[in-house]
Design a protein around this nucleic acid. Structure first.
Length: 413
DNA sequence: TCTGGGGTCCTAGGACCC
DNA sequence: TCTGGGGTCCTAGGACCC
């Protein structure tokens, strides 16, 4: 069987875009972000600078590091444009994130040549039309194609011949496998497993005991390149959330109230925009020592009203704090809504589930809130997100990441 | 070296139903 | 009345990915 699955991955995407926009940055170590590194150029990675790293730490590792603010609109535009190049070859494209996608070219080789030729053309076009480097892996399975693109980086192409795929796979470190992060890597290292080949030779029963039934079975299969996953072209999110790191702040209502309202606004307005109210509300409270606690509640009826979501979240947070009375400082708050439903049209959805008489369906307060959400949504439709909101301005200074960056990571609901 | 924000999936225990 | 077993939902936590 011919390898027909491509995994295409733009190299150091945000940093490459910045170097494209400003030629004086080319060939230099740069980091997008400030307080935290959102992306680092390959020149910066040489020094050990990585995404997610505190800016201060990055500067220590690489004193000549250049920080740039970030052109988030350009990232969206160029990421979309790169995916569109894949769309020109096949409709079987599964987008994983802003800068990464799978494509299955099995049905279009008679038009465009072998998978390897198609991959080379995609790379050439992305470079010529967008000015960006993109690496591509080609293999029989998604997992192997993804590994191949990692091996191909930066700016390369790796086609894995089915005749030698296990030899290719088995020499590589387990950390390259999908699903092996720091914790699993450490557990495997404890029993002497460092390479995918060693993993493959390990009895799957032993892996299941070490990692749990699902993870053990999955890794045993992937190590032999048994990957049954097909491309999923129309994935929709199963949850929507928002979070905000706070530094160290007192665990008091005057702190968490406004933050929760702002988070609820972000989440609920997205749910309303796609008519996907949700039944389960989860909050996460992280304390000063970075240990975090979650609390959730599942309602009888799905909700998407901002004030309703904020109130439920606040009740859950109060529950967390009551159960952890010694914790006086919080460092992060998060709200997530899951069990999303389809609602064909925007229904007159009103607070249910809280035993507060004032919030009964059809009450004056409920109706007023429904109207407020609708009014805010309409204003934003015309004038943009920033035009109106809850406490956004007051919180602006504390936000470590711009809203434009958050939006890049949002999945289609 | 304590560091962002958006997600997904798995596990384990308990409640509840048949 | 006691007992067993399976399925499903909910909750809390953890690991992982980009």
């Amino acid at each position: 069987m011919e390898p027909t699955i491509l995994h295409a991955d733009l190299d150091a995407f945000y940093a490459s875009v910045e170097q494209l926009l400003d030629p004086s940055l080319r060939g230099k170590p740069i980091a997008v972000g400030g307080g935290v590194v959102l992306a680092a150029s390959y020149e910066a990675r040489v020094f050990g600078v990585r995404g997610g790293m505190p800016g201060r730490r990055a500067r220590e590792l690489c004193p000549q590091l250049i920080f740039v603010g970030g052109n988030f609109g350009e990232y969206q535009r160029l990421g979309d444009a790169a995916i569109k190049v894949l769309d020109d070859f096949t409709p079987l494209v599964e987008r994983i994130s802003i800068d990464e996608a799978f494509a299955d070219v099995a049905g279009c080789t008679h038009l465009f040549g072998s998978p390897a030729e198609i991959a080379a053309t995609v790379r050439r076009r992305v470079r010529a039309e967008l000015g960006l480097p993109i690496s591509i892996g080609v293999a029989r399975t998604k997992h192997l194609a993804k590994i191949a693109s990692q091996v191909a980086k930066p700016d390369g192409l790796v086609v894995v011949d089915p005749a030698t795929e296990l030899a290719f796979l088995h020499d590589l470190p387990v950390g390259l496998m999908w699903g092996v992060g720091p914790a699993t890597k450490a557990r495997l290292a404890e029993i002497g497993i460092e390479t995918i080949g060693q993993l493959a030779k390990t009895h799957s029963g032993a892996l299941r005991r070490l990692l749990g039934p699902a993870a053990g079975e999955k890794l045993a299969s992937l190590a032999w390149n048994r990957d049954p996953r097909k491309l999923e072209t129309h994935r929709r999110a199963h949850s929507a959330g928002a979070q905000s790191a706070l530094g160290k702040r007192p665990a008091e209502a005057h702190v968490f109230g406004p933050v929760l309202l702002h988070l609820a606004d972000r989440v609920a307005s997205r749910l309303r925009a796609k008519s996907r109210p949700g039944r389960t509300v989860t909050v996460r409270v992280r304390f000063a020592d970075l240990h975090a606690v979650t609390r959730s509640v599942t309602l009888d009826q799905p909700i998407s009203a901002t004030a309703m979501l904020a109130e439920i979240a606040e009740e859950l947070v109060r529950g967390v704090l009551a159960a952890n009375p010694r914790e006086k400082t919080i460092s992060l708050l998060a709200i997530s809504v899951s069990q999303l439903e389809e609602s064909a049209e925007l229904q007159l959805e009103l607070p249910l589930g809280l035993d507060d008489e004032k919030q009964r369906p059809g009450s004056k307060k409920g109706l007023a809130r429904f109207g407020a959400d609708r009014a805010i949504d309409k204003i934003r439709q015309r004038f943009g997100r920033e035009a109106v909101g809850y406490g956004a301005v007051a919180l602006e200074a504390r936000r470590s990441v711009p809203d434009a960056f958050r939006e890049l990571a949002e999945k289609e609901l």
